[in-house]
Design a protein around this nucleic acid. Structure first.
Lengths: 121, 121
DNA sequence: CCCATACTGAACCTGATGGTTCAGTTATCC
DNA sequence: GGATAACTGAACCATCAGGTTCAGTATGGG
């Protein structure tokens, strides 16, 4: 899966990040690789439950796993959430532009209170 | 609501962003304020359905609304998703560090198994 | 006043989430 | 070879998500 640039990819990645447990798993895996058992123990959860979380992260491309013997080892990758960052950054720029425009309007509508012309926000 | 820095806030914001319609609404509102009816028409959806989306965005602090007469006008704010960006940026740094270390290992071990080829470096 | 517009809320439906238990299956270890 | 550990899959449960319809309520215009 792990298709790039489609809205669905953003959907999956943001959805994967919307759970505190899964964000914790990512932070944990940033420190070191871990097995399902390791992760399940860390987050006080059954193996099955943790495997589902890992599955979500894997489908979003944020985690890769490999099974050796009995043990499935989870590690970061193959995908860094670059598009998610890009979307958020683009949005932040739009937001800032919009808010500046709003400030302009407010400045125009109540010019009596701000002689310096700049907001204190 | 719009509480900052709690895991739940990240949950809500990321969840709000995990839907293409809602991201579209944010982009739309970045261009100009809009009523529920405007948004519902733009996204071919019932008023009720759109109101739910706006509610999600509002609860995540990404959209503010004000009702004047019959019309509820939606605009961006009051919150820019700074924490989400911060989390993702921090994660990207961890990812890069981790991947550098992994590359080291792979270089040592002669890379044979690559999950999808995208090694991104 | 009457009517259309704009929203609101409740109820409903379908499918996904987040978790569990239980019953396998496959490897490791002694 | 037998016990045990690690995982896997199916089934179940409660709750939520994304959407609808339908029946209101409130407001603006003629």
């Amino acid at each position: 899966m792990v298709q790039l640039s489609t809205p669905a990819a953003l959907d999956h990645a943001f959805a994967a990040l919307s759970d505190a447990t899964r964000r914790g798993v990512l932070e944990r895996l940033a420190r070191e690789d871990a097995s399902i058992t390791d992760l399940a123990r860390s987050f006080r959860m059954t193996l099955t439950g943790m495997k589902k979380h890992v599955g979500v992260l894997e489908r979003a491309g944020l985690v890769a796993t490999r099974k050796v013997g009995r043990v499935r080892t989870c590690r970061l990758g193959p995908r860094v959430p670059a598009e998610e960052i890009a979307w958020l950054e683009a949005y932040r720029r739009l937001w800032a532009a919009r808010f500046d425009a709003l400030d302009q309007v407010l400045d125009d509508l109540k010019p009596q209170e701000s002689t310096d012309g700049r907001h204190a926000r």
